[in-house]
């Protein structure tokens, strides 16, 4: 004969298992941000999906246990007496702490690994350190990555292409299937470069060359926003005209940009800017 508390445990276990399977199946169907336009965004979407799948049974277990307890162990109407004494259960406590610790450490490990990949470029297909492009190559050559400088200012981003004589653009254009090294800096105050669909967000600070890595996978447009409150027009510091284009389209575009830039007095490429001279400020 099964003891009453075993009956409760069995009911909870079965209900938890069934609901968890349903929850995980639903979780697998979700399309989670930021998408699949770059290797980084694919990795981040996968990470979010993993967290969703692991946390779903935990969430269902906690909510189910609370709801079951509220109904199964409620005080009967008109009955005024204390509940039975509870002395704890060492095995359950150890199991609870151990399972929680394992889940947290797994998620922390996976998350740190992803952060490290974004910070060091280990997602790159090439293990060599990124170098400047030779003529005609746009990020696909072994050991090479397209170098793009992101320059933030109140309240706009511009982009310099170090591989192409340091030409500068109003919008960020990238070739598909390319390794890209983004050098992010600012000419005035603290900003944050956030290309949402590309899965890239990094601080833009004056006097700092903040490097992050990107591998484009799909063509399409993306939005760039500032993710650091940077003054009265911070909300306007956005550009919806960023795009990942085919290699041929990029070559055409950058050639035109080089022509357009001929009349602009572009200074030699510098890794970062300082907010000086302090024009008209004292």
């Amino acid at each position: 004969m099964i003891r009453p508390n075993r009956t409760h445990a069995l009911r909870l276990l079965v209900a938890w298992a069934v609901l968890s399977v349903i929850g995980v199946v639903i979780g697998l169907q979700l399309s989670l941000p930021p998408g699949s336009q770059s290797q980084q965004s694919v990795d981040q979407s996968w990470l979010l999906k993993l967290m969703t799948l692991i946390s779903t049974p935990v969430f269902i277990g906690v909510v189910l246990y609370i709801l079951y307890s509220v109904f199964a162990f409620r005080q009967r109407r008109g009955l005024l007496e204390d509940g039975p004494p509870s002395y704890g259960n060492m095995r359950i406590q150890v199991a609870w702490v151990a399972i929680t610790a394992v889940v947290v450490f797994i998620l922390a490990g996976v998350g740190i690994s992803e952060l490290d990949a974004a910070a060091t470029g280990t997602n790159f297909t090439s293990s060599s350190a990124p170098t400047l492009a030779t003529a005609g190559s746009v990020g696909t050559t072994e050991g090479h990555a397209l170098q793009v400088q992101v320059i933030a200012q109140q309240w706009y981003f511009t982009y310099r292409y170090a591989d192409y004589s340091g030409v500068e653009s109003l919008h960020l254009m990238l070739p598909v299937n390319a390794n890209v090294v983004l050098h992010i800096t600012s000419t005035d105050i603290l900003h944050s470069f956030w290309a949402y669909q590309l899965g890239v967000k990094a601080d833009a600070n004056p006097g700092v060359d903040n490097v992050t890595y990107l591998t484009t996978l799909q063509t399409g447009s993306f939005t760039v926003r500032c993710a650091e409150l940077c003054g009265i027009w911070h909300g306007n510091m956005a550009d919806t005209n960023g795009a990942v284009v085919s290699q041929a389209d990029f070559a055409t575009w950058v050639a035109q940009l080089q022509k357009d830039n001929l009349s602009i007095p572009v200074p030699s490429y510098a890794p970062y800017y300082f907010p000086s001279p302090r024009v008209k400020g004292t």
């Binding site: 706009y156 005035d188 105050i189 003054g231 907010p275 302090r278 024009v279 400020g281």
Partner: peptide, 17 residues
């Protein structure tokens, strides 16, 4: 549409901004 000056020209303020 928001418009602005891109020269940090606020005299006497930090970096003119």
């Amino acid at each position: 549409y928001h418009w602005q000056c891109f020269v940090p020209c606020g005299s006497g303020t930090i970096y003119g901004n």
